[in-house]
Design a protein around this nucleic acid. Structure first.
Lengths: 330, 330
DNA sequence: CCTTAACATGAAAACGTTTTCATAGAGGAC
DNA sequence: GTCCTCTATGAAAACGTTTTCATGTTAAGG
């Protein structure tokens, strides 16, 4: 039932070397012989076993992705960028969701060893030293959204604190004083940095007395809940900065349910500029991150690292962000 | 640099068999010996090569996914369901986007051979016989959104035509006559079936004279464009049925830009019930598909097929849908 | 004290490929 | 006619594991 190169060789009346050669066209093989082989292969429904292949060649043409989650438009976009360049370079993608749990994370890495040529890891929770321990030495790796200057790995990061600062500053310039923050998942690097940017802007403008922060977890529903929490407070904010667009969208929905006009009564600004943000009602003012580029760039980095394993030098990249003003605040 | 089981064995002063045994704890091995091995492994940063492993064991604990795209909330949700059950069963996921091009599709399948234990294929374009040719005989496969009754493969499908019928019927019952359809990508199975359901409902209610269909491609921007196209027509519809939620959301955005009230002037209904639909403004009336369940179920099917390769019997499943009424139409 | 069962380890075959090394025929060049 | 150089093919080693078989130990049961 399971057809190997050996069966094909037998059926075609040639050696396995020859079969291999026609499948990789890696050397001269007579036209008629080639035809015989191809015919036999087709008859037997033969497909080369890639596991065996990568064993001898020690290359897999596959990049492993370890992400904290693979859901929602944020990851969608990042993945889209990665897929584009991987696909162009004729590489496949193997995904493992690590859900932030260390043991699961370690398991994912183990599962990838020998099946991928390179690794892209977004591990907003695990940092530096811990990662060093877990990641096999010999495999090119790029880190996303974590330790900005890891000495052993390429990193690519989003300028989170700068972005948050820009967002909050924009609100302040519009005259807002009581600006609430809906935070992202605790313990994650990006959430911390976005919070930091928020605080910096608040502090720089002497608005610490008005500071109000509520928890969220980067999901629409957590944004929805957070907004309700804010509405329940005795003194309501006049503006909300959500640490990502999904939460901003969720928050807007809660506000609308309560009959609160956005942006007239409460202004909202998000972060990421996921595709949905320009289709929402009102359209969301946000911090633009070129997520596709983010993914694309990460994949490019890992591919060059794979190609020149030896000469490759560690590099740290920061993805810039910009404010994009739409209609969810004034 | 690349550490194999052999190095570990040497360093620990045991045979490779013993090392293998401690890593798989597949037989008795003395406590002290085990400790030695583990130590050596840690020192050498050893991780078993999975390619070699799957070669001997002929099992990979990996399921291959071949999807027309992996982007947007639709795929996100399906993936989330798949990931949940795969992860519980301790399986990994290997993804390949086939983008509908046959050659790429074939390449994806080749790339998976020997690296996955089972396959989930969503190929809304390629059908029946063609698929039969391409898919290796010996690997358990489930087909999504295609040939409902393929004799060789498990299939799981969404009840598209029923859903579309329900949606349009709802609009008709609300008093709408001129109901426009924004179609999904041409040539795809689901798009065709949704169109069919729309037509059936229109015809059943004698509204053929009012029928109007415009093209889309399942994306928000195509929905946006389609809505503008509809607005440009001399006689505007009073309701729009979009073949998926993304297009419905895009369409609503276009309507709002033109100052057209939804649902008062034009009602909108979508299909899929992606998460965003309950956070939009207004909240979207749509056909609920339990996408997570869809993914979960597909993964479950392929896993049982993998487990009892021999006894497994082909099965065809239809995922039911239901109308969920929100505020985007009345 | 002998036999047997349980525990502990090693040697070597096998998994399905790719690739290096050999071998050999067929033209050309001299 | 001899010697190269192509072309075309096969044999066999290698990739890094798992697993079967064989072989010792050791301890328990009589």
């Amino acid at each position: 039932m399971k057809n190997t190169i050996k069966e094909v060789a037998k059926q075609a009346g040639v050696s396995i070397s020859t079969v291999s050669r026609v499948f990789n066209n890696t050397a001269f093989v007579d036209e008629p012989t080639k035809a015989k082989v191809l015919l036999a292969a087709k008859e037997l429904h033969y497909t080369p076993n890639q596991a065996a292949r990568s064993l001898t060649k020690s290359e897999t043409r596959t990049i492993g992705l370890i992400l904290p989650g693979i859901f929602g438009e944020y990851f969608s976009e990042v993945l889209r960028g990665m897929d584009a360049v991987a696909s162009d370079a004729d590489f496949d993608i193997m995904i493992s969701g690590a859900k932030g749990i260390t043991t699961k994370f370690e398991k994912s890495i183990r599962a990838m060893a020998g099946r991928v040529d390179g690794l892209i890891i977004m591990s907003p929770i695990l940092q530096g030293a811990q990662l060093r321990e877990l990641i096999p030495v010999n495999i090119p790796t790029v880190l996303l959204n974590s330790d900005e200057e890891h000495p052993d790995f390429d990193t690519v990061n989003i300028n989170n604190s700068e972005g948050a600062y820009l967002a909050v500053n924009h609100l302040i310039r519009l005259g807002h004083r009581r600006i609430a923050l809906i935070k992202g998942s605790e313990n994650t690097y990006d959430s911390q940095q976005r919070t930091e940017g928020y605080r910096k802007a608040i502090r720089a403008n002497g608005l610490d007395q008005y500071r109000v922060e509520v928890n969220g977890s980067f999901t629409k529903s957590s944004g929805y809940d957070a907004a309700r929490e804010l509405l329940a407070q005795e003194e309501r904010p006049t503006a909300i900065f959500a640490a990502n667009d999904a939460m901003a969208l969720g928050a807007m929905s809660a506000l609308q349910e309560h009959g609160i006009a956005v942006p007239n009564t409460i202004a909202v600004v998000g972060f990421d500029d996921i595709p949905m943000s320009q289709y929402s009602n009102p359209k969301l003012t946000t911090i633009r991150v070129d997520l596709k580029h983010f993914g694309r760039y990460a994949m490019e980095r890992v591919l060059v690292a794979v190609r020149d394993r030896s000469t490759h030098k560690v590099e740290h990249t920061m993805i810039n962000v910009e404010l994009v003003v739409r209609s969810s605040c004034h």
